Structure formats: structure tokens, C-alpha cells
Simulated scan of single mutants.
Amino acid sequence: MVTAKKKPVSKVPSQREAAPPRGGRTAGASRRSVTVTPPKPRWSEQYEQAVKEYARAVEQVQRRNWAEAQPLLEELVKRYGEEADLLDITDRARTYLKICARHLHHGGTRSPQGAFLLGVFHSNRGEYDEALRMFEESLAGDPGSDKILYAIAAVRALKGDRGGAIDYLRKAVAADDRNRIYALNDPDFDSIRDEPEFIDLVEPEEAGGRQK
């Protein structure tokens, strides 16, 4: 009697044998560690710049140059006051501003340079009356300074005072002839640029040729 041969039973692999290596790695593959570098904060450069400006202002405070420190601190607060990451700097700047104001209000001395810097600060903000007052105070302490005379001329031109602008510009050019070139390219004098007196002052050769 012939009996049928039994077919060999295939071995079913165990779960451990059947499962592929985790992560799709082949057996024996080496593991590689990956280091993730956190991105540099976007405000870092701005923070560094604010620190530099703050240091310059504090240096003037430490020297008791209240008038010189005040516009630097005001500009710092104006530029960075809304930045949440810079509150530690702007809060300190506001504190120093109060100190400067207190000293200046109670008879603190203000140098001609300090008054000049305040004039520049107010002029840049379009506060021409206050700028003119500061420049005139500066000139009283440093009569004949060509840069102060030039600044007064520029502010008077911005205010629409054509006669005053030309008068002070003439004094500035007499003190330093280079102011002639500066005024020729300075947009602050656009309101008087077509005035014959201005042309005669900043472009004497052209004015002479026109008269021939």
C-alpha cells in the first residue's frame, strides 16, 4: 500500500525575524547622530545695535554731559521703544532720560556742543522752532562757529525765512568757504535755491557769467 508523502511544512518566521529593522536600516548599518543647531534669533543684530547706542548714551551720562546724553537716549527710545525684546534697554534709557531732564531743568550746564546736538535732534524731527532756539543758544557759547551758522541758515530756510537763511549762510561761507559747496547740494535750501542772492553766494562763477 502506497501512502502519500507528507509535504514538508514551511517554517513560519517569528515576528522578530520577519520585522525589518527600525527606520529601514539594514542589519549592521551604523547609527548616525544628527545635531540640530537652533536658528539665531532674528532680533540679535538689532539687540547688539541697541546695546551699542545705549552704551554711547550712558557714557555721556557718566560724564554728566546731560545735554549730549538726552538726544541719544530719546532717539534710542523712539527707535526701539516698541520692541518687546529690548524692553530692558529702553526702560533703563527712560530712567536716564528723567535724570537728564532733572539736571537740565535745575540749572545743569549745557555746553555749546550739547545745545548744537539738541538742535540737530529737533531739526531731524521737524521741530524747527525748538531747533532754532538750541542753535542760537549754541552760537551764543561759540560765536563764529561755521557749523552752527550753517545749521541756523538751514533751519531758517526750512521755516521759509529766506532773508534770514541767506544772511546766516553768507556768514557761514565767510567762516569756511566749503559751506558754499555743502549748501549747493543740500535739500534744506530748496526753498531758496532759485533766489538770486543764493545763486550769487553758492555759484559766484555762474552768477558772474549771467551778468555779462
Rank of each mutant, 00 (worst) to 15 (best):
Met1Cys: 12
Val2Trp: 05
Val2Tyr: 03
Thr3Ala: 11
Thr3Asp: 09
Ala4Thr: 13
Ala4Leu: 15
Lys6Ala: 14
Lys7Phe: 00
Pro8Thr: 11
Ser10Lys: 15
Ser10Leu: 10
Pro13Asn: 10
Ser14Lys: 12
Arg16Thr: 13
Arg16Asp: 12
Pro20Ala: 10
Arg22Met: 13
Gly24Trp: 12
Ala27Phe: 14
Ala29Trp: 06
Pro39Asn: 05
Pro41Thr: 07
Trp43Arg: 10
Ser44Asp: 10
Glu45Trp: 00
Gln49Lys: 07
Val51His: 09
Lys52Ile: 09
Lys52Tyr: 08
Glu53Tyr: 06
Ala55Ser: 13
Ala55His: 04
Arg56Phe: 11
Ala57Thr: 08
Val58Asp: 14
Glu59Val: 03
Gln62Gly: 06
Arg64Trp: 00
Asn65Val: 02
Trp66Asn: 09
Glu68Arg: 12
Gln70Thr: 06
Gln70Lys: 11
Leu73Gln: 09
Glu74His: 04
Leu76Glu: 03
Val77Met: 08
Val77Ile: 14
Val77Gln: 08
Lys78Asp: 15
Glu83Gly: 02
Ala84Arg: 08
Ala84Tyr: 06
Asp88Phe: 05
Ile89Arg: 07
Arg92Glu: 15
Arg92Trp: 06
Arg92Leu: 15
Arg92Gly: 15
Ala93Arg: 15
Arg94Ala: 13
Thr95Gln: 14
Tyr96Val: 03
Lys98Cys: 04
Ile99Val: 15
Ala101Pro: 03
Ala101Ser: 10
Leu104Tyr: 09
Leu104Ala: 08
Ser111Thr: 15
Ala115Arg: 14
Phe116Ser: 11
Phe116Met: 11
Gly119Pro: 09
His122Pro: 03
His122Leu: 04
Glu130Asn: 04
Glu130Phe: 00
Ala131Val: 02
Ala131Cys: 06
Met134Val: 00
Phe135Lys: 13
Glu137Ala: 15
Ser138His: 11
Ala140Glu: 11
Asp142Thr: 05
Lys147Ile: 12
Ala151Ser: 14
Ile152Trp: 12
Ile152Leu: 13
Ile152Thr: 06
Val155Lys: 12
Ala157Met: 07
Lys159Ala: 02
Gly160Cys: 03
Gly164Cys: 07
Ile166Phe: 08
Ile166Arg: 15
Asp167Trp: 08
Asp167Val: 05
Leu169Gln: 01
Arg170Gln: 00
Ala172Val: 06
Asp177Gly: 05
Arg180Lys: 13
Leu184Trp: 00
Asn185Gly: 02
Asp186Cys: 07
Pro187Ser: 12
Pro196Ser: 02
Ile199Phe: 01
Glu206Ile: 01
Glu206Leu: 02
Gly209Ala: 07
Arg210Met: 02
Arg210Ala: 06
